Every structure is written in structure tokens, then in C-alpha cells.
Amino acid sequence: MNATFSNMTAAPEPEDYTGEDGLLYCGKCRKPKESYFPEGKTLFGRDRHPAECDCQRKIREERQAAEERRRHLDAVEELKRRGFPDQTMRGWTFENDNGQNPQTATARRYVEEWEREYAENLGCLFWGSVGTGKSYLAGCIANALMEKEIPVYMTNFAAILNDLAASFEGRNEYISRLCRYPLLIIDDFGMERGTEYGLEQVYNVIDSRYRSGKPLIVTTNLTLQELQHPKDTAHARIYDRLIEMCPPVRFTGGNFRKGKAQSKLERLKTLLAGGKENCL
């Protein structure tokens, strides 16, 4: 009874005052801290209940916003911990992008149109030469979606095949777990060993993802010609399913990895020659 009664009593501050209507007012914002029950009703013998003044409302909203920010940061941290097997991928963001990749705009649009992409099960097949930024932009998409609290898993078939071999009895559950992510990203497709067992498992994963009705993004160094004209039936059914799910997006331009390596070499030469430029 005492606790209930206390909750119905506005806590006065030294600067608060009683207005002409008999209610307690905030001495700072001049708004009431109490309100009368309607139609003369009472509760526990009282005719009024606490109300929020503007000061109290601001404090509450700021506290709730801070709590929401903490909750959001914790949620994103957990998504990235689970979604990236290699934690360096956390740095693959649009904010860190140098803007030189011609397909950056395509990757940004994918994030902007995510709800439609998800509803229509639209993925992408990023193909092109080594070092053209395919993996990086796929990681940018993953990071941007995780910042929106959308679960994404980015992996490769070498890791998937290792996991499947290590837990044969849980194979179906493992593949089902991959298919539960709203977006699955498979990096460096075609680099895994093409054994009969490996090809069968690759097909199982891609086909299961297809039947889940959820989008898939794949990066590959294979050419579109190689994907459209596979060397045998085992590869043909994998590539056919993949192209059906993921419209191809060609990555062109120079090799960013070689460019970065050359830049580092030039900085090192400058440093060793006694120049003023620091080695980053």
C-alpha cells in the first residue's frame, strides 16, 4: 500500500511550486508534475496522479535513447562476431572504401533496396579478375546490413566443406543454419577442391539456399564464359543453379591489391631513402 501510494505522489524539487489549480509544478519548465483524475475520481483517497513535466520527459527520452544505442551496438557486435569468420572483414565498409571501384554504386544500391531484394530473392554473382574488389564490396554489403541489425553470414566453400567433414552427423542442420540467414555471402567460389564429394556438397548448399527462397551473393574469379560453359555435368548443375539465383555483375578495372602493394613499396623506398613520408 505504501509503495503504491508513493508511486502516485509526485516527488517535489526545492524549486517546484503549487499552482493556482492546486497541482505541483516544475520550477524549471513551469509544467505540471501532477494531473487530476477525470470526473472527480479518486484512487486510495487521492484525486491526482503524477505527470511528466518537460524536464522529466527529456530525461526519460535521453535515457531511453542511450539504452537503445547500447542495445543496438551490442546487437551489431554480436551479428558481426557470428557473421564474419575473419574479423578483419569488419573493416570492409563503404566508409573505408577509396571510391575507385566502378561497382561501389551497385553495392550501395543493393543495401538501399534490401527489402525489395529480400522479398524478390535477388542475389548477385560478382565475377571478375583477381584483386578487383569483389570480396571487399561483398563485405561492405554485409557490414551495412548488419548495422541495420540484419543477420548476414559471409564465408567460403573451403570453410563450409571443412565444417561439413568435421560434423558429418550434423550436416543437414549445418546447411539449414546457413539457409536461415537473410543473406548468405559465399566468397571466392570456385577455389575449393573439385572432388566428387566436394562438388556434391557445394550443390547441396546452393540448392538448399535456392529452396529457402533467400538471396545469395557469390564472388568468383571464374569468367562468365566458364560459368556458362562448364566442363562436365557436375559443374553444370551447380553453375546453372547459381546463375539462376544470382544475376552476374562484372568487376572490371585494375588490380587493387597490386596497386596497394605498389603504394606500400613506394612508401618504403621513400622511408629508406630518408624522406619525410612515414611508412603507414
Rank of each mutant, 00 (worst) to 15 (best):
V111N: 01
M245G: 01
R180T: 14
E173I: 07
G99C: 10
E62H: 09
W92L: 07
A273P: 03
H49Q: 12
G45E: 03
F189P: 02
R48V: 01
F5G: 05
A261I: 13
K260Y: 12
L73I: 10
V130I: 13
N98C: 09
E149F: 03
D97Q: 00
G139I: 01
L73A: 15
K258H: 08
V218Y: 05
G139L: 00
E192S: 04
Y36L: 11
N278V: 13
E120N: 10
Q56T: 10
E112A: 14
C179F: 07
G99S: 09
E13N: 11
S35R: 15
N278E: 14
S129H: 07
L199T: 06
R90I: 04
L242N: 01
N204W: 06
L242A: 01
A75E: 11
G27L: 07
G45I: 02
N143G: 03
F168R: 15
A142N: 01
R116P: 05
R250Q: 15
T88Q: 11
M146R: 02
P182E: 04
P230K: 05
Y25E: 03
G40C: 07
N156M: 04
L265Q: 14
R180H: 12
T195P: 08
G275Y: 06
C140M: 00
T219Q: 04
S167N: 15
N204F: 06
R108C: 00
T219K: 05
S6N: 10
V76Y: 04
I59G: 04
P151T: 04
H235D: 07
C179I: 06
K31V: 06
N278L: 15
R57G: 00
D163P: 01
F189T: 01
D207T: 08
K231G: 12
K41V: 09
L271K: 14
G133S: 04
S208F: 02
K276I: 10
A273I: 05
V249Y: 04
S263V: 09
E34I: 01
T220D: 06
E61Y: 08
A3S: 12
I217V: 13
L222A: 05
H229P: 02
Q56K: 11
K31M: 11
N162K: 12
V249C: 07
H235N: 09
K260M: 13
E77I: 01
R81S: 12
R71Y: 08
N204D: 15
Q100C: 06
W127Y: 15
M191E: 14
L161F: 04
S167G: 10
S176D: 14
R60S: 05
H229E: 11
N172W: 09
G190D: 05
Y25F: 13
T195F: 07
T42D: 03
R82I: 12
R180A: 13
S212K: 03
C53E: 00
R63E: 14
Q201W: 07
N7S: 11
R241A: 03
